[in-house]
């Protein structure tokens, strides 16, 4: 029995998550629709979509908790259920910590460690990593949502896995916690690990992810490097401050631009560049006090992309009744929060 048979240690060797034509139906509703993409090591991949887009359903299938209607989800090249000592190969955070409210934090990690023959010294280590060493002997029922989230992350890190799947990890974390998890994910990716992190907040992903996978209503909308996504989907706007706003608006509209009025009375021309607006102003002989380019926010780019795929909107367009409330497990994080609070 040579040492060759055993896979090399986690570090410097990520793993791959591979979804092939993954589809999940709940009765009539299609939660995940022919989804194919690959998550590569060494970078943080943001898994983005509005609430109810199918992110959690997809991650649950990758972990073997949910069964695909068709297609496959492979981690390290095989179905999750076939992994040997999976906690050493995949770290997962799903909807918080999944810890029993009356089992001490340390004990929760201890039984997990036992299940995959991870040395018990590692329990203390991960508790330190997530900043929970002071409450190691406390019961999670007294934890805040953020502390529970940290306990869940500690569980994910327990086996020092080369691949991490984190479902909405910033949920319930305070600003300091958010910064911490952001840096943690970047560090893990920098060590060569594979990190897939889901979120419904584009702004959060913009600060963390190197690569983006965007889904809406279970379908793949984009699979692209972060920078390309920004370039492709953001429309730049030009801000114009002028003493003659009415004339300026007229001139810009005549030039074929869409113009709106900003909060402070300035004008904003959509989808154009500073140089073009400058020329229009010059030709019309209008005095200009300020001319600046405003990159569209990523949030706007995201909404532009997923706009028609949003499942439940506050007001305005009302979606079809049939797709209003998904009965599946892919719930709004706000719902989850309430549930956990009641426990």
């Amino acid at each position: 029995m040579g040492p060759m048979r055993r896979p090399p240690p986690a570090r410097q060797r990520g793993g791959v998550i591979e979804l092939r034509e993954l589809t999940k139906r709940y009765g009539d509703r299609i939660a995940v629709d022919d989804l194919s993409f690959t998550v590569s090591p060494g970078r943080v991949t943001g898994f983005l979509g509005p609430n109810g887009a199918g992110k959690t359903t997809t991650m649950r299938m990758a972990l073997g908790l949910g069964r695909p209607t068709s297609g496959t989800a492979l981690v390290h090249g095989r179905p999750y259920a076939q992994l040997r000592e999976p906690l050493r190969q995949v770290g997962a955070l799903l909807e918080g910590s999944a810890a029993h409210g009356r089992r001490r934090a340390r004990s929760h990690l201890l039984w997990l460690a036992r299940s995959n023959r991870i040395p018990r010294t590692r329990v203390r280590e991960v508790l330190g990593m997530v900043g929970l060493e002071d409450v190691a002997r406390k019961m999670p029922q007294g934890f805040s949502l953020g502390m529970n989230q940290r306990l869940g992350i500690a569980a994910a890190l327990l086996g020092d896995p080369p691949l991490l799947l984190l479902d909405e990890p910033v949920n319930g974390l305070d600003p300091e916690g958010i910064l911490w998890i952001r840096n943690l994910m970047k560090d893990l990716a920098a060590e060569g690990r594979t990190v897939l992190v889901s979120s419904h907040l584009m702004s959060e992903m913009a600060l963390t992810a190197d690569h983006l996978v965007v889904i809406g209503k279970g379908r793949l909308l984009a699979d692209t490097p972060m920078n390309d996504f920004i370039a492709q989907h953001s429309r730049s706007r030009v801000r114009v401050r002028t003493p003659e706003p009415d004339r300026m608006r007229e001139a810009l509209t005549r030039a074929g631009l869409r113009v709106s009025t900003g909060e402070d009375g300035t004008l904003e021309a959509d989808g154009t560049e500073v140089s073009f607006v400058g020329e229009v102003a010059s030709r019309a002989g209008i005095t200009v006090h300020e001319l600046s380019r405003r990159a569209a926010s990523l949030e706007e780019a995201f909404m532009g992309l997923t706009g028609e795929y949003v499942d439940h909107r506050g007001t305005a367009r009302v979606p079809d009744q049939a797709e209003a409330a998904p009965p599946g497990p892919d719930r709004d994080p706000a719902d989850v929060r309430t549930e956990r609070g009641d426990r």
């Binding site: 073997g64 999944a98 810890a99 409210g101 997990l112 569980a155």
Partner: peptide, 18 residues
């Protein structure tokens, strides 16, 4: 039963997927 009421079952089956 506590596995199901607390969500521990998810952790259990990710740790021991068989």
């Amino acid at each position: 039963g506590a596995e199901y009421s607390t969500g521990t079952i998810r952790a259990s089956l990710t740790a021991v997927p068989r």
